[in-house]
Each structure stands twice: as structure tokens, then as C-alpha cells.
Write a protein that binds this DNA or RNA. Sequence first.
DNA 1: CCATTCCGGTTTTACGTATAACTAGCGACG
DNA 2: CGTCGCTAGTTATACGTAAAACCGGAATGG
Lengths: 392, 392
Amino acid sequence: MSRPVTSTDGSDEAQGGTVAGAAGSVGAAGSAGVAEESAGERSGASGDGRWPSIRGPRTGARATSRDVARVAGVSQATVSLVMGEKWRGRVSERTADSVRSAARSLGYRPNLAARNLRLGRTRTALLVVPALTNEFFARVYTGAARVAAEQGIGVVLYPSPEGVGPARDPFASARATLDGVIASSMAAEALTALREGGLPLVMLDSDPERAEAATTVNLDLADGMRQVAGHLLALGHRRFVHLAADIDSWTFRVRAAALAEALRGTPGTELTVVRAPLTVADGLHAAEHALTRPGPRPTALVCDDDVLAAGTCKAARRLGLRVPDDLSVTGFDDLSLATAVEPELTTVRLPAEGVGEAGMRALMGVLDGGPVAPRVLPVELVVRGTTTVAGG
Amino acid sequence: MSRPVTSTDGSDEAQGGTVAGAAGSVGAAGSAGVAEESAGERSGASGDGRWPSIRGPRTGARATSRDVARVAGVSQATVSLVMGEKWRGRVSERTADSVRSAARSLGYRPNLAARNLRLGRTRTALLVVPALTNEFFARVYTGAARVAAEQGIGVVLYPSPEGVGPARDPFASARATLDGVIASSMAAEALTALREGGLPLVMLDSDPERAEAATTVNLDLADGMRQVAGHLLALGHRRFVHLAADIDSWTFRVRAAALAEALRGTPGTELTVVRAPLTVADGLHAAEHALTRPGPRPTALVCDDDVLAAGTCKAARRLGLRVPDDLSVTGFDDLSLATAVEPELTTVRLPAEGVGEAGMRALMGVLDGGPVAPRVLPVELVVRGTTTVAGG
DNA sequence: CCATTCCGGTTTTACGTATAACTAGCGACG
DNA sequence: CGTCGCTAGTTATACGTAAAACCGGAATGG
């Protein structure tokens, strides 16, 4: 009832040699049974044998535009025109209505694979990030997806599936034909494959020197770190530790360089660099180590991200140090974590969703014919409760 | 070098207008130049007019299996066999090698839209979640993507793009033909559309009564809440507040019901329910309200998730209450936040990645012919630093 | 010595869609 | 009155791939 015309029916008619058999859709069973032995044989050997109708993982059980056409009594082309909203002046209001109601009654949804093949484009972009469990990238995705949705573009993800194997192909994993790619420079493993992919590419937070042909969207991380340094210097701090991410990426190299450079301007400053993976526990251990080494204790601990800063605060408390009175701590990113801990973190707010949005807009610009000017988004120091004057 | 087969050549000429780039790269420039005025005309009117070659968002500029075939001196079918790894005993080792090297030199990548159309399936699943910025769902995705990757399946996301409009079509937004869907019951807006989609559907954390035909993967949330209640009752707590999520979803209803039920077994217990959206700030305010109302102060505050618990801890500190000595607090989920705050949260650990993994496996089972038995994953109370004996 | 099987391919076809090219009917206009 | 233009469609075709059907020749078997 609800699924009147099946593709089997249609193909049988086609086998018969005539398209006129449309009328037979009601009682075609008899004619199909009589119609060539060969046809029956084929469907028996291939169709049923390989994909029993119940188990069939085939998406193909759905109604096609041809089914809709038959029900509405028009040609497939007309269905396509109506569904594509391109029928103004080409199809009468009445016909369009009947097509739409036929489509609705059949539960018709256009086959996107066919559409993509026909159009040679998919309005789909790939976003390549290191891991979605990092809130920063989850927010980048959110921003990108929002802009994309406004433009009828889809976003698929390639987060290196941690532990699946080293060099999986980001394109193959996307399982969809793509129009373009937005990639974080932190997704290092996938980068070379992406460059060779031959698709329009937008790089997020990547070294401008090495971006080559790709359009770039960057955060002004150096400025962020300069703001941190300025803030702490103004509070009188002189002995610094930089708790740096243990990741070899431009994103973090630029932080380190900017901090060192900013402190160099003030005489009498000391800077020790300690590295740790980006987890609370690792940050805690690294901070503990930095705070218990011999010599005068540092008064300011600058962290590469909020997670490390949270770990640092825990370490301080364990050592009996009060934050911020005995030790000032700064984070980076302004994740939701920054205001979940107590005291709330002084940190650098990165417009994560803005990065996603800008990245997607840049990609659309490239798709529309670029070139697109590189963008650098401003960042902002947010002073909260983990910093105060030195030696308070 | 040589131009052997005339028929092949002919078809090339016919397509010369559109594929000119690829043909030129091989070296057929001469023939392409001669190729029919008509072909040139067509590409001028349609191809160039609509998609100037430079601006072209067309994915189609890539080499096709036919291009590879021409370079390797074989038929397109042979290329397809070799690339599909189905050539054992059908193609000689030597020929397969030459096909592979031709493919490599042309940078050939199969067009997935065409493949999906041909096969009628895409090996792509849609994961529908409320928001990736919730770490729980980011981890669900991670688990699902890992299992999927092992099986050569892709995962695309439909996180309700917050603020894009109410009733967007999750299928259309996926921008890809799908084989199946995994949906969180919290993605309420999309649910009816998903049920009507006619695709294999796996529901995560949904009311078993209303799951209908869908396969379900659930967490034993009721048991989790019973463990919380048992833990707190054993510590001597009698005056409880349930800080509940302000979301009408089975996931939270079952928590509330289980807590109330568990306390009912012990005489002399009190339970007040307060609702709040799932943010630290909202949790803080709600907790503050609950802790300052007239009457004897509650000694245990049970939260629907870790974010609310973090907010509660902040509220307690603001009110001069020590956690856990004056107030025991429990969370739910065991997000990374749970161990980032101080003291670390006593909470219920949910196997978030396990949910994603089980969901994907269930979907694969359905795709392979199901039915698949519903699964209920166990959860585990993790006692940390926010709970202690009442009236300590 | 002919029938059969196997090897190593080729030819052909279908997947479902979008759209260029064409057409039949009809009113209007020079 | 022929022709033009407009309306409301239809017919035909190509997108790139996978795989079924086919096929020539060599090896094998009775």
C-alpha cells in the first residue's frame, strides 16, 4: 500500500524492452512472470542470492524520482525540476502540487549519491582536527557547522581516530566526495595527505611561512602571550615558568617564542620551560616538579592551556601554596573549565567558534574563486582569580 | 604514446570538452585541440559559462578510472577490479602493477559519489547528538568513530546546529547518503524525522518502552543513581537535594525516579528537587538557592551531571561551606572536569566511548540482518573527595 | 581429437539525478 | 497567414563506478 512501486518492478518493465509498460504497474506480476525466462533467472541468481530482501543493507529500497514521476503521471525530469525548486515558469502550479504530494506519499528523498555524481560537487567540507574531546576543537566544529548550515553545506569530520593505526587516509575515511578541506595544523599526521589531495584547503593556526598555497585562518597567539606577559610583569612578577604543551606544533611554538621575547624586554626576569602532555594529571606532575626544584621559587606559572593550568592549581594546593597569593597561574583557551575551577582562571580567550566560522567562510571564498586573504583573529586576556601581585 | 584503440579514442574526443584537463596532462593535447567544434561549443555554453575552470567548485577535475585505464593500457573494468582488490585470479600480477602505478601517477582517487550510487550503500552512518561541546557526546562520537574506522565505515554528525533554526532535516544536513542512524534520545527535535526516515536506527539512552522498532543501547543509569544513594545513606546522610537537569529527557527522568525510589526505602529521609540548565553558572545559582532556603540545611547534594556538581562546589565555597565536611556533593558522567576540580568529584562513571562503540556495533548488526538484542551498559560509582560522613 | 575448464581480460549495463535540447499547442503580432 | 514567443512539458544524456556477462585462446581431460 504505502510502498506501491518498487525498483524491481521498474527494472522488470525495462527488461521487457518497452517503457510503455507503466500502466502495468498494478498487475504486472503476470506479465513479469511470463516475460523472458532470462529475466527471472538473472534476478534469482544475482539480486536475491546476494542481497536477500530482508537483510539488504542496500539503501536502494527507497522510492526514486522515477517512482514519483509514475505516481504523479509526469516524467522524471519534471519531478527533478519540482524537487529542485527550479520549476518557476517551466511547470504549472497544479503539476508541481501533484508531484509534491506524490513525493510525500512515497516518502521520497532524493538520492544524494546520485545528485552528487551528477553535479560533480557535494556541498560537503571536511574538517580535520586532532580530537573532539578537546573542547576547543568541539567549538571550532560548532562554529564551522553553523556557518555551513546557513549555506546548505555539510561538514564531515576527520578526527584522527586515536589508536586506529598511524596513517589512515582522511579522504577515504570521510566516505563522501568532498568539495574542500579545513584542517587544523595540529592534525599533523594527516597534513601531507591533505596537501596532495588536490582539494581547496584552508589551514587553521598554521605557520604562515609554510602554508604555501593554502588559505590560512590564524589566532593572534603571539599577542595573547604578550598580554599575559605584560599582565604578569605589571604585577611585579620576575621568576616565570612556562608550562608548555609537549606537542611539536606551530600553535605552541609561537606561544613559547612570544613569551620568551616579551620577557626579554624586562631586565631581571627568569624563564624556565617545562613540558607536559595536555592533561590535568600531567600538568599537575610537571608543575609539582617545577615548583619543588632547588633555588628561588617561581612566582608565576604560565600554561599553554587551561587544562594544564587546572593541573597547576592542584599541584600548588598540594604543596601548600595558595593561588594566587603565593603563585600566579595563567591558562590559555578559556574553555568552560576556566570558570569551573576555583579560583577561576586568568586566561586568554580564544574565539574557538570564530575560528570555525572564519575557516568555513574562507573555504567558501576559495570555492567561489578565491584568493581569500588570510585572517588573523584577535584574542583577549581575561583576568580572573589566579593572578595577583607578586610576593603578596 | 601510441593511440591504439579507435573506439576508446572516439569516446575520449566526445568528452574532450569537459575532461580536457586530464587528457592534456597525459599528452593527448593534439587530438584534444582538433576535437570537434561541437564539443568545444558545448563546453563553452555550459561548462565554462557556469563554472569557469578556475573558479570551478567541481570535484570533477580529478582523474577517473577511465583515465587510469587509458594510461595503463587496459579497460576501465580492469582498473575497477584492481582498485577494489578483487582481482585475485582475474588479473595478472603484471597488469595489476601497471594499473596501480598509473593510478598513483595520476593521483587517482575513486569518486565516492559514483561508487555509492553504484553499490546502493555508502558504509556511512549518521550520529545524532545534542551538542559536541558536551564532552560526553564528544566521547560517544570518539567510540563510535573508532569502531566504524575498524570496519571501514564513516561517521557523519548531526549535532543540532544550535541557533540555526528549529526543524532542519538531519538527513539533508548529512549531505551524504546514509546506511543507518545512531541517535541520542536527547536530540529530541530530530527524533520524529529520524523515525520516519526508514533507515536502520539505533537509539542511545532512550526509554525502552518507546523505542519501538529501534534497537537500543542504554546505560544503567538507575543503578548508578542507586549506587549514589546507597553510598550517601551509608555515610549517614538523610537530607538530600537533587540538582536535576532542566531537560525533559528519559536520561534524566530515570535518574530522578531512581533516586527518589532509593531514598524511599530509608525512613527519615528528605528529598528536594531543584532544576537547572547544564552549565556551571546555572548549577551555582541553583545550588545557592537550595542551600539558603529556610529550614535545616541539606547535607548531601546529588547532581545530574559533573558540570552541575562543579557549580555546586563553587556555591558551597561562596556560602562558607566546606566540601565535603559540611556538604557532600556527587556528580554524574565522570567527565575530565571531575578530576580537574578540587576536591575531585565523587561521581558515576559512564562508559561514554563504550556507548558509541556499542551503538556502532549494534548498527552494524542491524545492517547485517538483525535483530540485535538491546544492550544495557553497567556504570560505576567512583568515590573521590566530595563525599564524606554526614555532620562531620 | 573434441569438449571442458581456466586464465586474463573486455564489453556492457545500471545505479538516480540534473539539465540541455527539443517539441507540441496556442495566442499574438506584423 | 506565417512566424514568433511563450507555456508546459518530454526525451535524451552524462556523471564515474562495480560487476555481470561475455570471449578468445591455452591447458586439460577423456
